[in-house]
């Protein structure tokens, strides 16, 4: 156990020191790694732990981004506060969706369709709302200051996104160890049995979706003030919903390190291949590359890459468990 923590501490220190040696462009790639790891982690709270598949999580990302920006532009509210308001709005929407889904026992594909429908409806509403920039989107003015959540260069964004990711891991770890986490896993493994044992599954499903939506919305605020442009299609669209679930799936669902590992694999691939291929006039090729990686992982590592990484690292990091725990396929690095 201590070796694992030592390893994580060293990793933490190295990542904290990276801005000292890396240039702006590479730091930007790391920002995307942390950003998508965080968003993936937020989605993981709902889908990874309770097993309810949301294919419309872009909805909460968009709500967070639009709400923060709207409050900032119209009321001069700092994004540092606006993002928490955005979180509450996203949670409210999530709870409404959850109420419809969980109260009326929507399972499997029906729940998935419900999540897609909510995201699409919101996309269409925002596309036709003058106050939210309708289909031309919103441009954010660049006015760097800490209060505005806007900065020159990537170093502050690097630390903020890194902080987001680390905090999300701590939050999910806390959830995992709590009764809430236990109940969420029970729901994922066998919702009916959990119910028969007296677990109020409706309540814990609602909690899970509220937390997940809230966390995702915070990332929206970051996105808005990093990219400076919001468009309904890119914020609420299906492509974003898919983008944000790929990393936890590739890394390993229902684990803390899964979304992070997945993001370290896919985000650089996405950024570099996008830059490389679009120079050669091959825009969109990176998406194909992406698809191939996703298919390979699903085919050969259906439980996510994390399972193999833990297996490889276990003898070094946890010598005591590696020796006796041959049967344990503990994937979450506990």
């Amino acid at each position: 156990m201590t070796r694992l923590y030592l390893f994580l501490a060293v990793l933490f220190a190295v990542l904290m020191a990276l801005p000292l040696v890396l240039g702006n462009y590479v730091l930007g790639i790391f920002v995307m790694v942390y950003f998508w790891a965080y968003v993936g982690q937020s989605w993981n709270v709902l889908t990874g732990y309770t097993g309810h598949i949301s294919l419309g999580h872009a909805l909460y990302l968009g709500v967070g981004a639009y709400a923060t920006t709207y409050f900032a532009q119209n009321f001069g509210l700092s994004p540092w506060i606006g993002m928490f308001l955005g979180g509450f709005i996203a949670s409210a929407i999530g709870l409404f969706l959850g109420f419809l889904g969980f109260r009326f026992g929507m399972r499997g594909v029906y729940f998935v369709i419900l999540t897609i429908a909510f995201a699409e409806i919101t996309r269409l509403i925002v596309s036709h709302m003058e106050a939210l920039g309708s289909f031309t989107g919103i441009f954010l003015d660049f006015d760097p200051s800490f209060l505005h959540f806007q900065f020159r260069g990537n170093v502050p964004y690097y630390y903020i996104s890194f902080g987001f990711m680390v905090v999300s891991m701590v939050v999910v770890r806390t959830i995992e160890r709590s009764r809430l986490g236990r109940f969420m896993v029970a729901i994922r493994e066998n919702e009916e049995a959990a119910q028969a044992l007296g677990v109020n599954t409706f309540k814990y499903n609602m909690l899970a979706i509220a937390i997940s939506a809230y966390m995702t919305a915070l990332a929206g605020a970051f996105y808005a003030n990093y990219i400076f442009y919001l468009h309904p299609n890119s914020m609420f669209g299906m492509a974003t919903s898919i983008e944000l679930i790929l990393r936890p799936i590739v890394g390993g669902l229902g684990t803390i390190f899964g979304p992070v590992l997945g993001s370290f694999i896919l985000s650089p691939l996405s950024e570099i291949s996008r830059a490389y291929f679009s120079k050669g006039g091959l825009e969109g090729l990176h998406l194909i590359l992406y698809g191939v990686v996703a298919i390979l992982v699903v085919l050969f590592m259906p439980k996510g890459v994390i399972v193999y990484v833990t297996k490889m690292l276990n003898p070094i990091l946890k010598p005591e468990t590696a020796r006796q725990g041959k049967r344990g396929d503990d994937a979450d690095g506990r």
Binding site: A186, E189, E192, A193, G198, N200
Partner: peptide, 23 residues
């Protein structure tokens, strides 16, 4: 509610065990 029924003292062992396999 089901959870309340368990609390007042009725326990239900469902058909086909219905365990949580990875726990």
């Amino acid at each position: 509610s089901t959870s309340r029924i368990v609390e007042v003292g009725i326990s239900h062992v469902p058909e086909g065990r219905q365990l949580f396999p990875t726990m």
